Amino acid sequence: MSTSASRPRAALHRMVMPGHVCPFGLKARHLLRSHGYDVEDHWLETREATDAFKVAHDVKTTPQVFIDGIRIGGHDDLRRFLGLKVRDPKATTYRPVAALFAMAALMALALSYAVYGSVLTVRAAEWFVGLSMCVLALLKLQDVETFSSMFLNYDLLAKRWVPYATLYPFAEGLAGVLMVAGALTWFSAPLALVIGGIGAVSVFKAVYIGKRTLKCACVGGGSNVPLGFVSLTENLMMVAMAIWMLLAPLLWPGLHAAM
């Protein structure tokens, strides 16, 4: 059986002040403990103590981890030492889009179950697209200025008429809300068809014809999502939903009433 004496030991020096507890210090302590280390937790409780520690060990940041008397470094250095992945803040990733669509799908299924008692309904698919548009618009609206700057890199209409880059998230959000409500389809469907169609053509031209490497503004201006297949799919999904909402009442007039 493992005892405290047989477990490896580590010394952690981290900031713990009345107005600030370093989050990376807490993460480093958790990593050490979860990997079987007994942690000597040394608190740096004042700015003066922190600055003195940095000078004494010739380091620029805290926390700092020492194992067997050897300095490992800060939180990211500890992750590398333990063989764990370190996130690159500049790396492109599809994770935000995957999380967004997964959450929108779950919300749509939950709504379908609450209203119809089943998750497998036509409205669930419609709600998924509408909710996705609402959440995408929300992310853009958090910082419209940054979004519009990224959007202008590739959107064909925005390049010709700059205000469109600012208006786009409002239009997307409005179309999404109306689609979720199933209201004013005569307005929401053409609106989604126009902005989705322009978006699809713009992405296709920039990525597949122009061979440009860009970041997508789809989840807001601060994302590292690459412009490409996912962005094109998002716009085509919007177009498909718009066409469906226009044609479904004509081809299957009793569809929603039957559910």
Rank of each mutant, 00 (worst) to 15 (best):
V16T: 06
R33P: 05
W43T: 08
R33A: 14
G36I: 05
L32S: 13
E45M: 07
A52C: 07
V16D: 05
E45V: 09
A56K: 11
H35R: 13
G25M: 09
E48R: 05
T50Y: 00
E40C: 11
A49P: 01
F24W: 14
M15I: 14
P18L: 15
A56P: 04
H35D: 07
R29W: 07
V16E: 06
R33E: 15
T50S: 14
V21T: 13
Y37S: 06
L44D: 10
H30S: 05
Y37C: 05
L44Y: 10
E40S: 10
V55R: 07
R29A: 12
M17A: 05
H30R: 11
F24L: 13
R29F: 00
D41A: 15
H30M: 03
V55E: 10
Y37W: 09
C22T: 09
E48P: 05
L44S: 03
D41Y: 01
K54T: 00
L26A: 13
A49V: 01
A28C: 02
V16C: 03
W43S: 11
L32T: 15
S34M: 07
R29P: 00
V16S: 01
L26S: 08
S34I: 03
L44M: 11
L26E: 10
A56L: 09
R14I: 03
W43L: 01
C22Q: 02
T50I: 04
R47Q: 11
E45A: 06
K27W: 00
T50C: 11
L26Q: 12
D51M: 08
L32G: 14
L44G: 05
A56Y: 09
H35P: 05
A49C: 04
A28H: 08
V21Q: 12
L26F: 01
K54G: 00
S34Q: 14
E40L: 14
C22E: 04
T46P: 02
